[in-house]
Amino acid sequence: MKILVVCLGNICRSPLAHGVLQHFVNERGLDWVVDSAGTGGWHVDNPPDHRAIAIAKRHGIDISKQRAKQLHNRHLDEFDYILAMDRNNLKSLLAQAKTSEQRARIQLFMGDREVPDPYYDNRLFEVVFQMVEERCRELLRMWEK
């Protein structure tokens, strides 16, 4: 299975989800590919935001080696699940999709809710981490069946 998590800049929310999901996949010994990308390209090749790195580290997960990348059309064919962190990114992903098969792979990470962007509010990093961790556990339970 191949999973891509997508947010706007690929420096806060999607790297956290990528790191948490990868951590759980590794714990279970699953042969899955987990990656993340941003719909925008402002931060390409940069590490995650220092606050995202710090909150992940506080929970025993190292995301410091990740580097931001921008979503490309090829991702829409390469991944089984493409998970948007909010409705704006979902809309961008769906607009980029060219086929019904690509559109079928795209969904909101939280199902019917958005993950708030913590970039402008330091207090949200812990909230986002908790949301992401809980949802990653749910996704694994669904996908491992």
Rank of each mutant, 00 (worst) to 15 (best):
V25H: 12
G60H: 05
D121I: 13
I61F: 03
V20K: 03
L90V: 03
E114D: 15
M110W: 09
R123K: 13
F79Q: 02
Q102G: 00
N88W: 06
Q96W: 07
N26V: 02
P47H: 13
V20M: 06
L83C: 06
E78W: 03
D112W: 09
T99S: 14
S14A: 09
M85E: 02
S92L: 05
D35R: 08
L90N: 02
I106P: 01
A68V: 08
A97W: 05
L90Y: 10
D62E: 04
A37C: 11
V33S: 02
R51L: 13
G19Q: 01
N46Y: 14
H23Y: 12
D35S: 13
D80H: 11
K65R: 13
S14F: 04
E114K: 05
F79A: 01
S64K: 05
R28W: 00
I82A: 02
D49C: 06
V115A: 01
F109A: 07
D35L: 09
N122Q: 14
L21H: 06
L124F: 09
N122E: 15
H72Q: 15
Y120W: 15
A84M: 05
E101K: 10
V44N: 06
I55D: 04
D45Q: 12
P15A: 09
R103L: 03
K98R: 10
Y81V: 04
P48W: 08
G60E: 09
D86W: 11
H72V: 15
H59Q: 00
G40F: 08
G111Y: 14
H43Q: 15
E114T: 08
L83H: 04
V44T: 10
D35Y: 06
M110G: 07
R74W: 04
F24P: 00
T99A: 05
H50I: 11
T99Q: 03
R74Q: 12
D45P: 04
L21K: 03
E114N: 15
R51F: 05
K91T: 15
R103E: 10
V25P: 07
A37S: 12
P15R: 05
K98Y: 02
W32F: 07
V115I: 14
I53Q: 13
M85I: 01
R123V: 14
F79G: 03
E27Q: 15
R51H: 08
F109R: 06
Q96R: 15
F79I: 04
N89H: 14
H72Y: 11
K65G: 10
R67H: 03
R51Q: 13
L108W: 07
G111C: 13
H59L: 00
G41W: 07
A52Q: 11
L71Q: 08
N26G: 00
N73S: 14
K65C: 04
V25W: 10
G40W: 08
R105V: 02
I106T: 02
R103A: 14
R28H: 10
Y119E: 11
G19R: 03
G60V: 09
K98M: 05
S64C: 00
P116R: 06
D45S: 13
